[in-house]
């Protein structure tokens, strides 16, 4: 296996939560004056360390609230860890949920470029890949129509095509997209497998143990923000299933 592309070093993530979230200046002032401004600390990640090598597929499993999604956000740079460091190499592309980053008033084509730019791809690259993205999405002539007229299946196909047709170095998948009709689902699964086989590093969060066993090389089991177990997919999944 190749070099280390993700290095998570003793990461702790703590949130300060108001008892009820204060969202206005007035509330802030009145509660502060009454001396009721108190915070509850909540530790989402507790001294987590691991590394991922190039081309590996790492699965994150655990119960709801174990810190899986927080871990992904810390790795992609959206959240800054309270303690510890994360070092990554190469661009990180998250598999976006339906519609985020899309503008409903723009056409499918304009959205491909907008979304591609948000994901950090260059204009030349997107132009070169455009035909392929279009072909994969099976949208055909609808690509020139504002996407507010799309069905949810069409939207999901567009989203998946943009995220997966370009070759990210690190792909982040928070629950695999099962979108479109059966044929498209099969096609997207095949594409995922192809990406994972082709040198892309994948971080994969799922509650579906079959998918995890099938796709991952390594699995980390998080419980209440700590690494409960780390190892090969079979070993961790067997332990988790008990």
């Amino acid at each position: 296996m190749g070099k280390t592309v993700i290095e998570v070093n003793d990461v702790t993530m703590r949130f300060r939560m108001n008892n009820d979230r204060i969202m206005s200046l007035k509330e802030f002032v009145t509660t502060a004056v009454r001396g009721k401004l108190e915070y509850n600390e909540f530790t989402a990640l507790d001294h987590v360390s691991f590394t991922v090598k190039q081309g590996e597929t790492l699965g994150l499993i655990g119960r709801n609230g174990a810190g899986k999604s927080t871990m992904l956000k810390v790795i992609s740079g959206i959240l800054k860890p309270t303690e510890g460091t994360v070092r990554t190499e190469g661009n990180i592309v998250p598999m976006l949920e339906l519609g985020s980053g899309f503008d409903m008033d723009l056409t499918g084509r304009e959205n491909i470029f907008l979304n591609g730019a948000i994901l950090g791809y260059s204009e030349e690259y997107l132009k070169a890949q455009y035909e392929e993205i279009l072909a994969f999405s099976e949208l055909g002539q609808f690509i020139e129509v504002p996407i507010r007229n799309y069905s949810s299946g069409m939207l999901a196909r567009l989203a998946f095509s943009v995220a997966a047709m370009v070759q990210p170095e690190i792909l982040i998948v928070d629950e695999i997209l099962s979108v479109g009709d059966a044929a498209f689902q099969e096609k997207s699964r095949a594409r995922m497998m192809e990406l994972m086989g082709g040198g892309t590093t994948v971080l994969f969060v799922s509650h579906n143990m079959d998918q995890i066993r099938e796709m991952c090389d390594k699995v980390i089991w998080l419980e209440q923000g700590r690494v409960k177990m780390a190892g090969t997919a079979k070993m961790v999944c067997d332990a988790y299933a008990l």
């Binding site: 503008d103 008033d105 723009l106 304009e110 470029f113 907008l114 730019a117 948000i118 950090g120 260059s122 204009e123 504002p146």
Partner: peptide, 21 residues
């Protein structure tokens, strides 16, 4: 340099959608 393309796309978007309809 890195975000030039993104900035252009976002400005484009704002401008196109402003008078779209």
């Amino acid at each position: 340099r890195k975000y030039r393309f993104l900035i252009r796309q976002l400005v484009d978007r704002d401008f196109k959608t402003k008078y779209k309809r």
